[in-house]
Simulated assay, not measured.
Amino acid sequence: MSGGQKAKAKTEQAKGKLKESTGRAVGNERMTAEGRAEQAKGDARQAKEKIKDTLKD
Rank of each mutant, 00 (worst) to 15 (best):
L18W: 08
K56V: 13
G4V: 10
K15D: 12
Q13P: 01
K15W: 03
R36P: 00
L18A: 15
D53E: 13
A40P: 00
A37F: 05
K10G: 02
S2N: 12
S21F: 03
S2L: 10
E38F: 01
E12Y: 07
E20L: 11
Q5V: 11
G27P: 00
G35D: 01
A47D: 11
E12K: 12
L18T: 15
K8M: 08
A25M: 15
E12S: 07
K19R: 14
K15N: 06
E49R: 04
G35I: 00
K52C: 02
T11I: 13
K8N: 02
I51A: 05
Q13Y: 04
K17V: 03
A25I: 11
M31A: 08
A7I: 09
R24S: 00
E29Q: 09
G42A: 00
E49L: 03
A9D: 04
I51T: 13
R36E: 00
E29G: 08
L18P: 02
L18E: 15
T11A: 14
D43Q: 12
G23P: 07
A40G: 00
D43A: 14
R45K: 10
S21Y: 02
G27C: 03
E29Y: 02
E49I: 01
G4N: 12
K17S: 14
A33H: 01
E34L: 09
G16V: 02
A40W: 04
S2K: 13
M1W: 09
D57I: 07
A44Y: 11
Q5P: 01
V26I: 15
R30H: 07
